[in-house]
């Protein structure tokens, strides 16, 4: 039988998501320099993690499901890292 989450857990997760949305919106108006982007992305990752773990039941999913998701995130990281690696190093040869 599948795990049935309690209503209380869902409501707490919901409150946390709304609170984090308020925080990220508020922080956007403060000048933190490059930290602005980092804070905004950190909050987005935290919200996504909460949704995946609780709403999408990853907490109670099998190992295979977890491996599939991690593989997806790893591939996304490769996509972004290699693309940026290309763009940020294009000037290097001209400078040399």
């Amino acid at each position: 039988m599948e795990h049935v989450e309690s209503k209380r857990v869902y409501l707490l997760v919901f409150a946390a998501l709304l609170a984090l949305t308020a925080v990220t919106t508020g922080v956007a108006f403060l000048d933190l320099g490059p930290l602005n982007t980092i804070v905004a992305l950190a909050i987005a990752v935290a919200k996504a993690a909460v949704v995946v773990l609780f709403f999408m039941h990853l907490r109670h999913s099998g190992r295979m499901t977890k491996v599939v998701l991690l593989a997806g995130i790893f591939w996304l990281a490769l996509l972004i890292a290699l693309t940026l690696g290309d763009y940020f190093t294009r000037g290097w040869l001209k400078a040399a």
């Binding site: 949305t21 990220t24 956007a28 602005n36 905004a40 987005a44 919200k47 996504a48 949704v51």
Partner: peptide, 16 residues
């Protein structure tokens, strides 16, 4: 979740 990332990236960057 897609929107959770779209909101800060599109709306919140450089707001200050």
């Amino acid at each position: 979740i897609v929107w959770i990332f779209l909101f800060p990236l599109l709306y919140l960057i450089g707001r200050h």
